[in-house]
Design a protein around this nucleic acid. Sequence first.
DNA 1: ACTTCGTCGTGACATTTGTCATGACGTAGA
DNA 2: TCTACGTCATGACAAATGTCACGACGAAGT
Lengths: 203, 203
Amino acid sequence: MIRLLLADDQALVRGAIASLLDLEDDLEVVAQVGRGDEVLEAARSSRADVALLDVEMPGLDGIGAARQLKVEYPSCRALIVTTFGRPGYVRLALEAGASGFVVKDTPSGQLADAVRRVAAGHRVVDPALAAESLAAGPSPLSARETDVLIAIRQGNSSGEVASQLHLSEGTVRNHLSSAIGKTGARNASEAARIAAENGWLLA
Amino acid sequence: MIRLLLADDQALVRGAIASLLDLEDDLEVVAQVGRGDEVLEAARSSRADVALLDVEMPGLDGIGAARQLKVEYPSCRALIVTTFGRPGYVRLALEAGASGFVVKDTPSGQLADAVRRVAAGHRVVDPALAAESLAAGPSPLSARETDVLIAIRQGNSSGEVASQLHLSEGTVRNHLSSAIGKTGARNASEAARIAAENGWLLA
DNA sequence: ACTTCGTCGTGACATTTGTCATGACGTAGA
DNA sequence: TCTACGTCATGACAAATGTCACGACGAAGT
């Protein structure tokens, strides 16, 4: 019997996936949480074998939760199940020690198989997504450029970003200019959008 | 027996919700589609009683699909089931003739009840969401301001927006300035973000 | 008929944003 | 040690953006 932990901030989706997987004879959902920072404790107390983690969650994102599990409770393997197939997410997830990566676009019948393969110690990654992730390469952005783009994405002006990060306005503009060049964007907000779509803006 | 149609672009979520609702004795999922523009035909050929519609879908959004159903096949009632509780969405959905509005945050056990109430001819709207939607009021943006913000949100510069909409650059800047004032934003991209969060930018 | 509103346009102006050159500092690798 | 890179900063300049005043047209309501 494979013991499962579900982590997704949308209760309805979480419950629905639970009922889907509970149909399988060899799978058993033993814990459900709605926040990333509750994953580790729940995995321990429920002795879960596999954790299905959404990326977007309050408290801690699913990739961070996978990293925690890998370090603190490695007997529970992490399978990322997310809406967005951002190329950067796949890379980050695998670097964080996740065993698999599945997008919510995949047919529902395949999820149980993915869980079984992960439980058996294999890696499961959507082939198309893996190729895209490999082709896209790692984030070209420096740490500061990433910070600045995250702040810009909230709708802040460059002056506001400067005071938030305790930088001069000129420095922010320099980082922005560099990020615009690297992303091939035409202005700051487009650069932030492109970076987000590539999964380069994980806090 | 209540006959259900599911429309959601994420196959995994769609299948999971199907397995959740199929557990109920009086509910039966008779059709599933992944695009908004396939809803009407599927509802007709499957003689569905209730359609569960996601808002974000390719082809046609769920609110547009609800409008189609209301006009072309009114015996099938529409229940919007979406990730985002944007205030404007609730208003638009009800104006389009939808019978209910549920966010994916709600506990999975309540979905079946919502479906039954809709099937019985009642309206179902999350009370907190209904209040928020009423308090927020309708969109203050004119049609053109909305067009401009939609184009801006893609990362276009005001010049590019002008040529896309066949307007002069000055006119675009005027519409933008007006939209910035109405949204309380500090620049164009923040205005676009605020408008989107309020559900004012449905194509 | 009059007013209001949205739409579209122009021109002028201040501010913001993007680019570039330049320099300093620290870290990491060759 | 030398080099490369990221970080932070300044100053100058061009381009884009935001604001304002003004006018014209048509649709809708009084």
